[in-house]
Each structure stands twice: as C-alpha cells, then as structure tokens.
C-alpha cells in the first residue's frame, strides 16, 4: 500500500489479472503439438508471464507510484502459475491470489472470465481491473472484455497510458491505441481496462533482494469449489468453443540469396530484384 499523492483522498484499489503461458520466444522449429493434438506441448519451453499481462502490471505499478493505491494480482491456472505471482510479488505488489484449476481441459476465455469475476466478488470491490490485451498463446483477446461483462462494468481496451484525475478521484484518464492513432478518454471507475504495449510500459526487472523476499510472502490460494463457481456454468462455458484441429503450417518459401563478387555487385543485384517487384506492383 502506498499513501495517496498530495490532494488525492481516495486510494485506488487495483487488480491485475495475470496469465502464465508457454514462452512465446520459443523458436518455430522447436514448437510441438501435444499428443491429443489440441494444444501446444508444454514441455518444449519454459513458462512465462504473458507479456501483455506484464505490461498491465507495469502500468499498475507506475500508477501506484504516482497516485498511491493498492495492487492485487490474480491468476487462474495450474500450480506452476504460482511462479508468475511470485514474480509480481517481487515487484512489490500488495497481495497475490492463485485460483487453482482442477479442470481436465484448457479453460477458454469465457471460463476464465467467469472464475475471475467470482474471485473479484469474493475479494471485494476494485476501482480498476487490468488485464493484458491478449495472450501470447491462444491470443483470443477476449478475457478482459468478457470479465467486464461478467462484472457489469464498462471496458476500455488497448490502453497504453493510465493516470488519475487530479480533481475527481473517481475518474481516470486513459490513452488508448487505435488503428490510426490514439484516443484520450476520461473514464469513471469501477472499470475494466485491457493494456497494450508501448515504450512507457516495458516491464521492469525485480531487485534480487525482492525476488528472495517474494518467496516468503503469503499467497491466497483458492479452489473453484471455494469460490463457489457453479460447475454447470463452467461446463457450458467450456462447451461453447471446441478446437477441432491444430496444425503447424508448412512453409514452402525458398530464399534466394543475393550473391556477387563485391558488395557493390550484391547491392546492384538486390536493387534490380527490388526494382522488378516495385515496377510490377
């Protein structure tokens, strides 16, 4: 908890939703599909915090530094997901919640949003709920938006800057990216925001001391049963989308190397090839 900035009387209570995913940096040649053919083989690479979740967390940390407030992080996942919560604790968030998944299949965004909403109701009200814009694995880009619907809150997507209003403590000022540029918005809390990357929210690196300390910090762990999530609704959520096929696309492009005796020869040849394409365009 960080005290409020001068003039602000209300401390924002911020929740950041995190997801652990297969490291997206994994080179294509090492990517494998699991035996059931419905998901990636998780043994091929490390598991990391989804980058856009990290951008959301960084946005929250900067907001707290500037305006005060409290940050809780939450994830719904298998036991290994605790690692990303520890990572967030090492960045000095105030508390962390793990909801253990005992589902036999990968939860889709509908199921994740339902579970997160149930946890939010149990944790009490948040002024701001932040998620990443999408995840680097299935990339559905739906969880934040569906969570807003589950909570009955407005939603701002693709935010890349977040500031408190200096006068009205129930307002935040958001810059969001659009196809052609950006929009500046003024939004009332409570609110769900999905965060995208820009040069200002590149995730920070934890101090070694904080990493050590993070392992000793308490962590709230809940099962789905403890949250009181209705099993029937969960199975309906899971049934609304079904992966019928997952395949690795075959690439057939053959790169022709531009070669030549001297550098000048190579550049001449490259220029000719480029000119041919440009002139046919």
């Amino acid at each position: 908890m960080i005290s409020p900035a001068k003039g602000l009387t209300h401390l924002m209570n911020i929740l950041v939703c995190l997801k652990q995913i297969l490291d997206p940096e994994l080179p294509s040649r090492d990517f494998r599909i699991d035996a059931a053919g419905r998901d990636a083989d998780r043994n091929t690479a490390g598991l990391v915090m989804n980058i856009f979740c990290a951008n959301a967390l960084e946005t929250a940390l900067q907001f707290r530094e500037k305006h005060g407030g409290k940050i809780t992080v939450i994830t719904f996942g298998v036991p290994s997901a605790e690692e990303i919560l520890r990572k967030a604790l090492a960045l000095r968030v105030d508390s962390a919640v793990l909801i253990r998944s005992d589902l036999s299949q990968r939860p889709n965004p509908w199921c994740i949003a339902r579970v997160l909403a149930a946890a939010i109701r149990k944790l009490g009200d948040f002024d701001l709920v932040l998620t990443g814009r999408e995840s680097g694995d299935w990339g559905d880009g739906q969880t934040g938006a569906l969570l807003a619907e589950e909570l009955g809150r407005p939603c701002v997507s693709l935010a890349d800057e977040l500031k408190a209003d200096t006068v009205n403590t129930a307002l935040v000022r958001i810059r969001r990216q659009t196809d052609q540029g950006w929009e500046a918005l003024e939004a009332s809390t409570p609110l769900v925001i999905t965060v995208t990357n820009n040069e200002h929210n590149v995730p920070r690196i934890a101090k070694t001391r904080d990493v050590m300390q993070a392992f000793r910090q308490p962590l709230t762990t809940w099962s789905l049963a403890e949250l009181g999530v209705d099993a029937q609704s969960i199975s309906e959520d899971l049934a609304c989308t079904e992966v019928v096929e997952l395949a690795i696309p075959i690439k057939q492009t053959h790169c022709e190397w531009v070669t030549g005796e001297t550098l000048d020869d190579r550049i001449s040849l490259l220029a000719k090839r480029i000119a041919t394409v440009v002139q046919s365009a």
Binding site: S28, G136, D137, A239, P249
Partner: peptide, 16 residues
C-alpha cells in the same frame, strides 16, 4: 485462426 504467435493454426468450432 493463427495461434501461438503464428506457430500453429487452429480450427475452432463455435458451438453456441
């Protein structure tokens, strides 16, 4: 649609 950052392609049935 492409998934896993373009490393795989999935066909998804929308049942509802």
């Amino acid at each position: 649609r492409s998934v896993y950052g373009g490393k795989a392609q999935a066909t998804i049935k929308l049942s509802r």
